[in-house]
Design a protein around this nucleic acid. Sequence first.
DNA 1: TATATATGCAACTTTTCGGTTTCGCAAATA
DNA 2: TATTTGCGAAACCGAAAAGTTGCATATATA
Lengths: 106, 106
Amino acid sequence: MRRDIFQAIADPTRRAIIALIALQAMTPNAIAENFHTTRQAVSKHLRILTECDLVKQEYQGREIYYTLEIEKMKEIDKWLEQYRKIWESRFNQLDNVLSTLKKQKK
Amino acid sequence: MRRDIFQAIADPTRRAIIALIALQAMTPNAIAENFHTTRQAVSKHLRILTECDLVKQEYQGREIYYTLEIEKMKEIDKWLEQYRKIWESRFNQLDNVLSTLKKQKK
DNA sequence: TATATATGCAACTTTTCGGTTTCGCAAATA
DNA sequence: TATTTGCGAAACCGAAAAGTTGCATATATA
């Protein structure tokens, strides 16, 4: 099953998990303590996040630390770029209108 | 039913619709021509996009033109901001390492 | 006025999703 | 060695999502 980063961040619990491990690597149990769900449910979310390379696993004995793969987040930023161009150009247009009004005032 | 912008952009068809109407306002029929689904399916997507204020409707006779509400896209950018800080700080750390190496060379 | 067109909405179906429960396995510990 | 602990995987379940079909309605057009 091919996972997509946009699908991965669609779920609020997964976004919260991302926010958590962005601060420090955590084990599934430690992550689950922050939610009102079972560890297994968290494990499922972690699997989805892993499948689309948003998180990485670090094995340490029988514990598995999950870390955020921050580079992957840039993909969203990249997608957003095309729209950022639009809202910035619109802002410039508004800027032009304002400066035109200013000139007319003079 | 409360809609979320992250859920809205999770669907690839909806992202494609957003990309389409970002260029110019379009009617449901015109949008549907670009996909291998029925007009009704597109209408459903448009409804979801409308519910979370990502698109606006402009009535013109019996036609309805859908336009992208670009301001709403900034919400994603805002969410991304916290992670942008992280990857930028990591970049700076790397930058420091590089400049340290450079100094040692001298 | 009769017909065609553009659209939304409701009902229904199939698929997907998020969750729980149960299990098995490997590592730590008594 | 026996038991506890940390974890993933599979089976199952209910809810939601995405799609289709079949309407109803309003606006054009012949």
